[in-house]
Amino acid sequence: MLKKINIKHCIVVLMASAFLAFGLYNVHSVSGVTEGGILGMSLLLQHWLDISPSISGFVMNSICYAMGWKILGKMFIFYSALSTIGFSVSYRIFEQFEPLWPNLYEYPLIASVLGALFVGIGAGVCVRIGGAPSGDDALSMSISHVTGLKIQWIYLISDLIVLVLSISYIPIQRIGFSLLTVIISGQIIGVINKTGTGSATRS
């Protein structure tokens, strides 16, 4: 497997993960506009069942990564692990500073579009290389690989399910802006990933 590792791909994945982390910290964490997928589901479980996202997120991500490994192979796991580490380290670094746009909560439309750009480009580049920054990316890649469906539509369906469930505790206005975010980010990921599931090959 080591012979198949592309150093250029590794650098790109780390940069894309940092870009994603930058957006989530400076946009989503202050704007009240959420994402779908595992992040949204973990917040939902925390609200209704008092289960910490550190537990629910770990379990759901592990299941999705296991599915991805079974379908997409060892290189998928390698690039996904690199992406996850890059994201975590970058987010931790960004946390040492104040958010750049603390007033974004007052401008949800701007926040939804800006957040979608960070998520779509950051996650999209990682997926294009063949790794998944989070479990829902892995799940979408796996379903797309098996069914042949375009990845942006799989993202949209899974995110819609989570957002509909989130109406139970998030104001409907914020859900609307969150829906705009997931639609735009999903389409961006789809465009970046248009040639398939990424450059990493199954092994």
Rank of each mutant, 00 (worst) to 15 (best):
M1E: 11
K3A: 13
C10E: 09
I11D: 05
V12P: 01
L14A: 12
A16H: 07
A18F: 00
A21D: 03
A21Q: 00
V27I: 15
G32N: 11
V33E: 08
E35C: 08
E35A: 14
I38K: 05
L43D: 12
L45H: 04
W48N: 14
D50C: 09
I55V: 15
I55K: 12
S56G: 01
N61L: 04
I63D: 02
K70Y: 14
I71A: 14
I77M: 14
A81W: 04
T84E: 00
G86C: 05
F87H: 06
S90Q: 06
E95R: 12
P99D: 04
L100Y: 05
L104R: 01
P108A: 05
L109G: 15
I110D: 06
L114H: 09
L114T: 14
F118S: 01
V125A: 02
C126P: 07
G130Y: 00
G131V: 04
A132F: 03
P133T: 10
P133R: 01
G135H: 02
G135F: 01
D136A: 13
S140G: 09
S140Q: 09
I143E: 01
S144T: 03
S144Q: 08
H145N: 13
T147F: 02
K150E: 10
K150L: 06
I151S: 08
I154M: 07
S158T: 13
S158H: 10
S158E: 10
L160H: 04
V162A: 06
I170A: 07
P171V: 11
I172Q: 08
V182I: 14
V182E: 04
V182Q: 06
V191N: 12
I192P: 06
K194G: 00
K194I: 07
G198L: 08
G198A: 07
S199L: 14
T201L: 11
R202M: 11
